[in-house]
Simulated scan of single mutants.
Amino acid sequence: MAISISICGSMSFMDEMEAIASSLAALGCEAMTPVREERNFDWSNLADADLVALKKGFIDRHLAKIRRSDAVLIANFPKHNIGGYVGPNTLMEAAFAHALSVPVIFLYDPSRQACGLECVSISCGCVNGDATEALPLLREIRPGGSSLMAH
């Protein structure tokens, strides 16, 4: 059975997350990203109740992917002059994974921001920009591979 990895990050990194998913899929992983629809959606014309309901739906769908994942890879590219940027949704997703004992791996060092301590505290490692290095790291965290499914 393929290793399942949910990729999380700012929606402004959607192209990058999809490229990471493709590189992981080429290695035999099931790689899941947020839905592109959220990035391209025009939020400006919605009433507050509709806005909240729609956002909740996007969040719930991605959290369901995390729940069935063997690991989460945080695609934390530079943004807002912060290297390894982690925004509020991404931090929420990482904490959710951590609470479920799903390993959380960061693409880049997340320590240089307001929530850096929280990120580092729940991290199983950082792959220094090479998403494919998540696989050896997972084998290190859970030797034997098959134990990746036990969570």
Rank of each mutant, 00 (worst) to 15 (best):
E37P: 03
E18K: 06
R61S: 06
V72R: 10
M92D: 08
I105V: 09
T132F: 06
V72E: 04
E133I: 05
H98L: 07
L148G: 06
L117D: 13
D15T: 15
L135D: 04
A64T: 08
A71L: 04
G84V: 02
A95K: 12
H62P: 02
D15H: 13
S123Y: 05
A95Y: 10
A97Y: 02
S146N: 09
S23N: 11
E18I: 02
V120R: 07
R142A: 00
K79T: 03
F77K: 09
V72H: 07
F13S: 00
V102L: 03
D50L: 07
P78H: 13
D60P: 01
A19K: 12
R67G: 01
E30D: 14
L100C: 03
M14N: 04
S121K: 14
I5K: 03
C115A: 15
N45Q: 08
C124I: 13
E140S: 15
E38I: 06
A19V: 08
S4Q: 08
Q113G: 03
D42I: 11
E93I: 03
V102Y: 02
I141R: 15
D130G: 03
V102R: 00
P78F: 12
A75E: 03
S123K: 00
L54P: 02
I82G: 00
C119P: 00
F58R: 02
M92C: 03
S4I: 13
I66H: 01
D48H: 14
C8T: 06
K65M: 05
M149W: 14
T33Y: 05
I20C: 10
L117R: 15
A26G: 02
Q113W: 03
S23V: 06
F41P: 00
E16W: 05
S12D: 09
M17G: 01
L117F: 07
Y85Q: 05
N40T: 08
S10Y: 08
L63G: 00
A31N: 10
S147A: 13
L27Y: 09
P143T: 04
E37Q: 12
Y85L: 03
C115Y: 09
I105H: 02
P88G: 11
S69G: 01
G83Q: 15
G144V: 04
P110K: 09
G57Q: 15
E30N: 08
S111Y: 00
L63C: 12
F106S: 02
S23G: 00
F58I: 05
S101N: 15
A26R: 08
E133G: 06
F13C: 04
P143I: 00
C126A: 07
S4K: 15
D15K: 13
R139N: 14
G57E: 14
K56D: 02
Q113M: 07
M17I: 08
S123W: 08
G145S: 11
H62Y: 07
I20E: 12
A95F: 05
G84D: 12
L117V: 15
L148Q: 11
A26L: 05
G144F: 04
N89Q: 08
I74M: 12
L117T: 15
I122Q: 07
D15C: 08
I82E: 09
P88S: 14
G9C: 02
H98E: 09
A31E: 03
D130P: 00
V35Q: 15
A99F: 07
L51V: 04
S111A: 09
S22H: 10
D15N: 10
R139L: 13
A150K: 15
L91F: 13
L107I: 11
M17F: 02
